[in-house]
Protein backbone atom coordinates (compact mmCIF):
# COMPACT_ATOMS: atom_id res chain seq x y z
CA UNK A 1 0.00 0.00 0.00
CA UNK A 2 1.17 3.48 -0.77
CA UNK A 3 0.42 6.44 1.45
CA UNK A 4 -1.24 9.32 -0.31
CA UNK A 5 -0.66 12.78 1.15
CA UNK A 6 -2.86 15.77 0.41
CA UNK A 7 -1.12 18.89 1.72
CA UNK A 8 -3.32 21.99 1.89
CA UNK A 9 -0.58 24.56 1.57
CA UNK A 10 3.07 24.85 0.65
CA UNK A 11 4.22 24.79 4.26
CA UNK A 12 2.58 21.45 4.73
CA UNK A 13 3.96 20.24 1.40
CA UNK A 14 7.56 21.03 2.37
CA UNK A 15 7.10 19.26 5.66
CA UNK A 16 5.76 16.14 3.95
CA UNK A 17 8.48 16.17 1.31
CA UNK A 18 11.07 16.36 4.07
CA UNK A 19 9.60 13.29 5.71
CA UNK A 20 8.97 11.42 2.46
CA UNK A 21 11.93 12.29 0.27
CA UNK A 22 11.23 9.38 -2.09
CA UNK A 23 7.60 10.25 -2.69
CA UNK A 24 6.25 10.81 -6.16
CA UNK A 25 4.51 14.15 -6.54
CA UNK A 26 1.46 14.49 -8.73
CA UNK A 27 -1.36 16.90 -9.42
CA UNK A 28 -4.22 15.65 -11.60
CA UNK A 29 -3.15 12.01 -11.55
CA UNK A 30 -4.06 11.42 -15.18
CA UNK A 31 -0.54 10.33 -15.91
CA UNK A 32 0.58 8.93 -12.58
CA UNK A 33 -2.32 6.55 -12.09
CA UNK A 34 -1.89 5.19 -15.59
CA UNK A 35 1.77 4.47 -14.83
CA UNK A 36 0.77 2.94 -11.53
CA UNK A 37 -1.51 0.56 -13.43
CA UNK A 38 1.45 -0.37 -15.61
CA UNK A 39 3.53 -1.09 -12.49
CA UNK A 40 5.90 1.75 -13.32
CA UNK A 41 5.65 3.50 -9.96
CA UNK A 42 7.66 1.99 -7.16
CA UNK A 43 7.69 4.75 -4.61
CA UNK A 44 6.24 4.04 -1.17
CA UNK A 45 4.25 7.26 -1.00
CA UNK A 46 2.55 9.81 -3.17
CA UNK A 47 1.94 13.49 -2.66
CA UNK A 48 -1.00 15.08 -4.40
CA UNK A 49 -0.88 18.84 -4.99
CA UNK A 50 -4.56 19.30 -5.84
CA UNK A 51 -5.47 20.97 -2.54
CA UNK A 52 -2.81 23.66 -2.56
CA UNK A 53 -4.66 26.83 -3.46
CA UNK A 54 -1.41 28.79 -3.75
CA UNK A 55 -0.62 26.74 -6.83
CA UNK A 56 -3.85 27.51 -8.62
CA UNK A 57 -5.34 30.37 -10.52
CA UNK A 58 -4.33 32.86 -13.18
CA UNK A 59 -2.88 36.17 -12.05
CA UNK A 60 -2.37 39.20 -14.23
CA UNK A 61 0.69 41.21 -13.19
CA UNK A 62 1.24 44.11 -15.56
CA UNK A 63 2.39 42.76 -18.89
CA UNK A 64 2.81 39.28 -17.46
CA UNK A 65 0.48 36.49 -16.51
CA UNK A 66 1.24 33.92 -13.86
CA UNK A 67 -0.51 30.60 -14.25
CA UNK A 68 -0.60 28.45 -11.15
CA UNK A 69 0.91 25.08 -12.01
CA UNK A 70 -1.99 23.19 -10.45
CA UNK A 71 -4.61 24.92 -12.57
CA UNK A 72 -6.60 22.32 -14.42
CA UNK A 73 -6.85 22.50 -18.18
CA UNK A 74 -10.56 23.17 -17.88
CA UNK A 75 -10.03 26.07 -15.51
CA UNK A 76 -7.61 27.63 -18.00
CA UNK A 77 -9.93 27.04 -20.93
CA UNK A 78 -12.64 28.90 -19.07
CA UNK A 79 -10.36 31.67 -17.83
CA UNK A 80 -10.96 35.08 -19.45
CA UNK A 81 -7.38 36.24 -18.95
CA UNK A 82 -6.10 33.22 -20.87
CA UNK A 83 -8.83 33.51 -23.49
CA UNK A 84 -8.04 37.17 -24.04
CA UNK A 85 -4.27 37.01 -24.07
CA UNK A 86 -3.32 33.55 -25.22
CA UNK A 87 -5.79 32.14 -27.75
CA UNK A 88 -3.01 29.85 -28.98
CA UNK A 89 -3.04 28.13 -25.60
CA UNK A 90 -6.82 28.00 -25.47
CA UNK A 91 -6.89 26.35 -28.88
CA UNK A 92 -4.48 23.67 -27.74
CA UNK A 93 -6.30 23.08 -24.46
CA UNK A 94 -9.52 22.67 -26.39
CA UNK A 95 -8.19 19.58 -28.15
CA UNK A 96 -6.22 18.19 -25.22
CA UNK A 97 -7.39 14.63 -24.52
CA UNK A 98 -11.00 14.86 -23.37
CA UNK A 99 -13.13 17.02 -21.10
CA UNK A 100 -12.72 14.43 -18.33
CA UNK A 101 -8.94 14.51 -18.54
CA UNK A 102 -9.04 18.31 -18.79
CA UNK A 103 -11.07 18.47 -15.58
CA UNK A 104 -8.32 16.60 -13.77
CA UNK A 105 -5.03 17.21 -15.50
CA UNK A 106 -3.06 20.38 -14.84
CA UNK A 107 -0.78 22.57 -16.88
CA UNK A 108 2.07 21.96 -14.44
CA UNK A 109 1.53 18.24 -14.80
CA UNK A 110 1.58 18.49 -18.58
CA UNK A 111 4.91 20.31 -18.38
CA UNK A 112 6.52 17.99 -15.84
CA UNK A 113 5.43 14.85 -17.68
CA UNK A 114 7.39 16.35 -20.57
CA UNK A 115 5.86 14.14 -23.19
CA UNK A 116 7.04 14.98 -26.70
CA UNK A 117 3.36 14.92 -27.63
CA UNK A 118 2.15 17.22 -24.83
CA UNK A 119 -0.45 19.59 -26.23
CA UNK A 120 0.32 22.62 -24.07
CA UNK A 121 4.04 22.69 -24.81
CA UNK A 122 4.13 24.10 -28.37
CA UNK A 123 1.88 27.03 -27.38
CA UNK A 124 3.93 27.67 -24.27
CA UNK A 125 7.11 27.60 -26.38
CA UNK A 126 5.83 30.23 -28.79
CA UNK A 127 4.70 32.26 -25.81
CA UNK A 128 8.24 31.97 -24.45
CA UNK A 129 6.89 30.78 -21.12
CA UNK A 130 9.06 30.55 -18.05
CA UNK A 131 8.59 28.04 -15.27
CA UNK A 132 8.77 28.98 -11.65
CA UNK A 133 10.36 26.28 -9.55
CA UNK A 134 10.14 26.14 -5.81
CA UNK A 135 11.55 24.10 -3.03
CA UNK A 136 11.40 24.53 0.70
CA UNK A 137 14.32 26.90 0.72
CA UNK A 138 14.52 28.41 -2.71
CA UNK A 139 12.73 29.59 -5.77
CA UNK A 140 14.09 29.88 -9.26
CA UNK A 141 12.74 30.66 -12.67
CA UNK A 142 13.85 29.45 -16.08
CA UNK A 143 12.73 29.32 -19.66
CA UNK A 144 10.44 26.39 -20.37
CA UNK A 145 12.58 25.33 -23.27
CA UNK A 146 15.57 25.12 -20.96
CA UNK A 147 13.53 23.27 -18.36
CA UNK A 148 12.53 20.41 -20.62
CA UNK A 149 15.49 18.23 -21.48
CA UNK A 150 13.92 15.25 -23.20
CA UNK A 151 10.98 12.86 -23.10
CA UNK A 152 9.97 12.71 -19.46
CA UNK A 153 13.14 14.52 -18.43
CA UNK A 154 13.19 17.98 -16.87
CA UNK A 155 15.48 20.07 -14.72
CA UNK A 156 13.36 19.43 -11.66
CA UNK A 157 15.48 18.30 -8.72
CA UNK A 158 14.45 16.29 -5.70
CA UNK A 159 12.38 18.37 -3.35
CA UNK A 160 11.35 20.82 -6.05
CA UNK A 161 8.02 21.42 -7.69
CA UNK A 162 6.91 23.56 -10.58
CA UNK A 163 4.77 26.17 -8.88
CA UNK A 164 3.82 28.40 -11.75
CA UNK A 165 4.21 29.38 -15.36
CA UNK A 166 5.03 32.95 -16.27
CA UNK A 167 3.94 34.17 -19.65
CA UNK A 168 4.46 37.65 -21.09
CA UNK A 169 1.50 39.09 -22.93
CA UNK A 170 1.92 39.19 -26.68
CA UNK A 171 -0.21 42.16 -27.72
CA UNK A 172 1.35 42.57 -31.14
CA UNK A 173 0.65 39.01 -32.19
CA UNK A 174 -2.74 39.27 -33.79
CA UNK A 175 -3.03 35.75 -35.15
CA UNK A 176 -2.86 32.74 -32.89
CA UNK A 177 -3.04 29.32 -34.48
CA UNK A 178 -2.80 25.76 -33.24
CA UNK A 179 -3.26 22.62 -35.25
CA UNK A 180 -3.04 19.09 -33.97
CA UNK A 181 -3.03 15.95 -36.06
CA UNK A 182 -4.13 12.89 -34.15
CA UNK A 183 -5.74 9.54 -34.83
CA UNK A 184 -9.19 10.92 -34.02
CA UNK A 185 -10.77 14.19 -33.00
CA UNK A 186 -10.73 13.70 -29.25
CA UNK A 187 -8.85 11.46 -26.83
CA UNK A 188 -5.97 11.71 -29.27
CA UNK A 189 -2.26 11.83 -28.75
CA UNK A 190 -0.65 14.30 -31.12
CA UNK A 191 1.14 12.80 -34.12
CA UNK A 192 2.24 16.28 -35.13
CA UNK A 193 1.18 19.66 -33.82
CA UNK A 194 2.07 23.20 -34.69
CA UNK A 195 1.56 26.33 -32.61
CA UNK A 196 1.98 29.68 -34.31
CA UNK A 197 1.90 33.34 -33.36
CA UNK A 198 1.81 35.94 -36.10
CA UNK A 199 2.06 39.66 -36.15
CA UNK A 200 0.40 40.55 -39.41
CA UNK A 201 0.30 44.09 -40.73
CA UNK A 202 -2.65 45.79 -42.36
CA UNK A 203 -1.09 44.90 -45.69
CA UNK A 204 -1.15 41.21 -44.73
CA UNK A 205 2.60 41.29 -44.28
CA UNK A 206 4.22 39.10 -41.65
CA UNK A 207 5.98 41.40 -39.22
CA UNK A 208 6.82 38.78 -36.69
CA UNK A 209 6.19 35.09 -36.25
CA UNK A 210 6.90 32.33 -33.79
CA UNK A 211 6.51 28.66 -34.60
CA UNK A 212 6.73 25.51 -32.51
CA UNK A 213 6.15 21.92 -33.55
CA UNK A 214 5.16 19.19 -31.14
CA UNK A 215 5.53 15.42 -31.36
CA UNK A 216 8.21 15.50 -34.04
CA UNK A 217 11.30 15.31 -31.84
CA UNK A 218 12.24 14.48 -28.23
CA UNK A 219 11.29 18.04 -27.33
CA UNK A 220 9.38 20.85 -29.02
CA UNK A 221 11.01 22.09 -32.21
CA UNK A 222 11.39 25.78 -33.06
CA UNK A 223 13.14 27.44 -35.99
CA UNK A 224 14.59 30.92 -36.13
CA UNK A 225 15.50 30.26 -39.72
CA UNK A 226 11.95 29.64 -40.89
CA UNK A 227 10.65 32.52 -38.81
CA UNK A 228 13.18 34.81 -40.47
CA UNK A 229 12.17 33.57 -43.90
CA UNK A 230 8.53 34.45 -43.30
CA UNK A 231 9.06 37.91 -41.86
CA UNK A 232 8.58 40.65 -44.39
CA UNK A 233 6.43 38.50 -46.67
CA UNK A 234 2.82 37.76 -47.27
CA UNK A 235 1.93 34.16 -46.38
CA UNK A 236 1.77 33.08 -49.97
CA UNK A 237 1.95 29.45 -50.91
CA UNK A 238 5.22 30.21 -52.63
CA UNK A 239 6.87 31.60 -49.52
CA UNK A 240 5.60 28.78 -47.36
CA UNK A 241 6.66 26.16 -49.89
CA UNK A 242 10.14 27.56 -49.77
CA UNK A 243 10.24 27.33 -45.98
CA UNK A 244 8.66 23.90 -45.74
CA UNK A 245 11.75 21.80 -46.57
CA UNK A 246 13.52 23.38 -43.63
CA UNK A 247 10.78 22.18 -41.34
CA UNK A 248 11.33 18.71 -42.70
CA UNK A 249 15.05 18.99 -42.05
CA UNK A 250 14.90 20.21 -38.47
CA UNK A 251 12.39 17.75 -37.06
CA UNK A 252 13.70 14.50 -35.58
CA UNK A 253 10.66 12.28 -35.37
CA UNK A 254 10.38 8.62 -34.49
CA UNK A 255 8.29 5.74 -35.81
CA UNK A 256 5.70 4.60 -33.34
CA UNK A 257 2.38 2.82 -33.30
CA UNK A 258 0.56 6.02 -34.24
CA UNK A 259 2.61 7.10 -37.26
CA UNK A 260 5.90 6.75 -39.03
CA UNK A 261 8.71 9.26 -38.87
CA UNK A 262 8.23 9.88 -42.59
CA UNK A 263 4.63 10.86 -42.12
CA UNK A 264 5.56 13.17 -39.26
CA UNK A 265 8.18 14.88 -41.39
CA UNK A 266 5.73 15.35 -44.23
CA UNK A 267 3.01 16.71 -41.99
CA UNK A 268 5.40 19.00 -40.09
CA UNK A 269 6.04 20.53 -43.48
CA UNK A 270 2.41 20.56 -44.55
CA UNK A 271 1.14 22.24 -41.40
CA UNK A 272 3.39 25.11 -42.32
CA UNK A 273 1.80 25.24 -45.78
CA UNK A 274 -1.60 25.46 -44.10
CA UNK A 275 -0.66 28.76 -42.46
CA UNK A 276 -1.41 30.51 -45.74
CA UNK A 277 -5.08 29.71 -45.41
CA UNK A 278 -5.54 30.23 -41.69
CA UNK A 279 -8.31 32.72 -41.09
CA UNK A 280 -7.56 35.67 -38.93
Amino acid sequence: MKRVFLPHNLEELWRIIAGEPKADIYAGGTDLLVKLRQNLINTPSLICLERIEELKGVHEQGDEVMIGACSTHTSLLENPIIQRNFPVLTKALNVLASPLIRNMGTIGGNICTASPAADTLPPLYVLKAEVEIRSRSASRQMALKEFILGPGITCLKAGEIVSGIWVKKVPGFNLHHFEKVGQRKALAIAIVSLATLFKISGEEMVEDVRLAWGSVAPTVVTSNEIEAMLVGHRLSRQVLKKAAPIARAIVKPIDDIRASADYRRQVAENLLIRLGSVQK
Partner: peptide
Amino acid sequence: GECGVCTILVDGESRLSCLMFAAQ
Protein backbone atom coordinates in the same frame (compact mmCIF):
# COMPACT_ATOMS: atom_id res chain seq x y z
CA GLY B 1 -8.88 7.36 -18.46
CA GLU B 2 -9.46 6.36 -22.06
CA CYS B 3 -13.16 5.47 -21.98
CA GLY B 4 -15.06 7.51 -19.37
CA VAL B 5 -17.35 4.75 -18.10
CA CYS B 6 -16.13 5.35 -14.54
CA THR B 7 -17.19 9.01 -14.56
CA ILE B 8 -18.51 10.45 -11.29
CA LEU B 9 -19.20 14.02 -10.23
CA VAL B 10 -16.92 15.50 -7.57
CA ASP B 11 -18.11 18.87 -6.30
CA GLY B 12 -20.28 18.97 -9.42
CA GLU B 13 -17.45 18.38 -11.90
CA SER B 14 -16.93 15.19 -13.86
CA ARG B 15 -14.00 13.04 -12.80
CA LEU B 16 -12.55 9.70 -13.81
CA SER B 17 -12.85 7.53 -10.73
CA CYS B 18 -10.24 5.11 -12.09
CA LEU B 19 -7.61 7.86 -11.89
CA MET B 20 -8.28 9.02 -8.33
CA PHE B 21 -7.36 7.71 -4.94
CA ALA B 22 -9.87 7.40 -2.13
CA ALA B 23 -7.82 9.92 -0.13
CA GLN B 24 -8.75 12.56 -2.69
